[in-house]
């Protein structure tokens, strides 16, 4: 028998392993207890507790920060699935706070206003795992080298326009496939070009995948969007504004969960797509002036 006091907490395997358990699932943004319960009942694998969904952050503007601890704790008390919460890029003190609250995952997120335009958080310093966004392979590997235990491809959050998520999933997937095709002596220059650590580049070239779970996020609003992202190689999806900014949130949430599991079966996705009511109205990414595009935050 083993004693728990010999246990090792906060190692890379339990951090990355936590994300492995979320695979094939949908993580939903929620702003209150009622939404969190709807998400859990619909079969979400986790919820992201935040004060404003990205669509409202975009509409209302201003500086967007970590959520109130009372709000996060109320959601933790209401559901038994994992609860995630966001901190601003580089804001390690917000992350320290979330760690004391015992949230299950921290999202160092470009959806909030960045706190540091040079450095991301040194995520190895925490026992709690982090997920970070990436638009390309180099960015993903830089985040992993800082200790991220999960990556989500960035889309353009709060728009309901899936095109940026598509671009970034294809980009990351394409760069991984390219690495796998290179000769071993070409990986040094590849690492230089990706601006990523050589050891991680070599690992990706050998295994043909990221060393951590890859979800996708940003602009996903329908079961078909979820199915498309899964077919493009996502391990699972984040849905932010897409559910609770739509007509029948409970039904849409359950439909997106089904489509994410049965993404290879168009008939199931078709059935899930019936009678969902109005989808979020949405904004075309092309109509958003470049300085207001969230996916371009992070470096």
């Amino acid at each position: 028998m083993s004693k728990a006091n010999e246990a090792q907490v906060g190692g890379a395997r339990v951090k990355r392993g936590m994300a492995e358990m979320l695979k094939g699932g949908v993580i939903m943004d929620v702003v209150n207890v009622e939404q969190a319960k709807i998400a859990e009942d619909a079969g979400a694998v986790a919820v992201m507790a935040l004060e404003r969904v990205p669509a409202d952050i975009r509409a209302q503007g201003g500086v967007s920060r970590m959520s109130d601890p009372d709000m996060i704790e109320a959601i933790q008390a209401a559901v038994s699935i994992p609860v995630m919460a966001k901190v601003r890029i580089g804001h390690f003190a917000e992350a320290q706070i979330l760690q004391t609250l015992n949230v299950d995952y921290i999202d160092e997120s470009e959806v909030l206003t960045p706190a540091d335009y040079e450095h991301h958080i040194d995520k190895w310093n925490f026992t709690i795992p982090f997920v970070c966004g990436a638009t390309n392979l180099g960015e993903a590997l830089r985040r992993i080298s800082e200790g991220a235990a999960m990556i989500r491809s960035k889309g353009e959050a709060g728009t309901g326009d899936v095109s940026n998520a598509t671009t970034h999933m294809r980009k990351i997937g394409g760069e991984i496939r390219r690495l796998s095709s290179l000769r071993e002596d070409e990986l040094y220059v590849a690492a230089k070009e990706l601006q990523a650590p050589y050891a991680l580049v070599k690992e990706v070239a050998e295994t043909g995948k990221l060393p951590v779970v890859l979800f996708t996020a940003g602009g996903i609003a329908t079961p078909a969007d979820a199915a498309m992202m899964m077919q493009l190689g996502a391990d699972g999806v984040f849905i932010g504004s897409g559910i609770f900014k739509s007509g029948d949130a409970a039904k849409r949430a359950a439909a997106c969960v089904k489509a994410t599991t049965f993404y290879t079966d168009p008939k199931v996705v078709a059935d899930a797509s019936r009678g969902l009511g109005e989808a979020m109205v949405g904004i075309n990414v092309a109509d958003i002036p470049v300085p207001h595009r969230l996916a371009e935050r992070g470096w």
């Binding site: 083993s2 004693k3 728990a4 010999e6 246990a7 907490v9 951090k15 933790q76 038994s80 994992p82």
Partner: peptide, 17 residues
């Protein structure tokens, strides 16, 4: 008992017989 050992910060590894 679900989540018997606690939330994610308490997740751990240990050698078992």
């Amino acid at each position: 008992r679900r989540n018997a050992f606690g939330r994610q910060t308490e997740s751990f590894e240990v050698d078992l017989d």
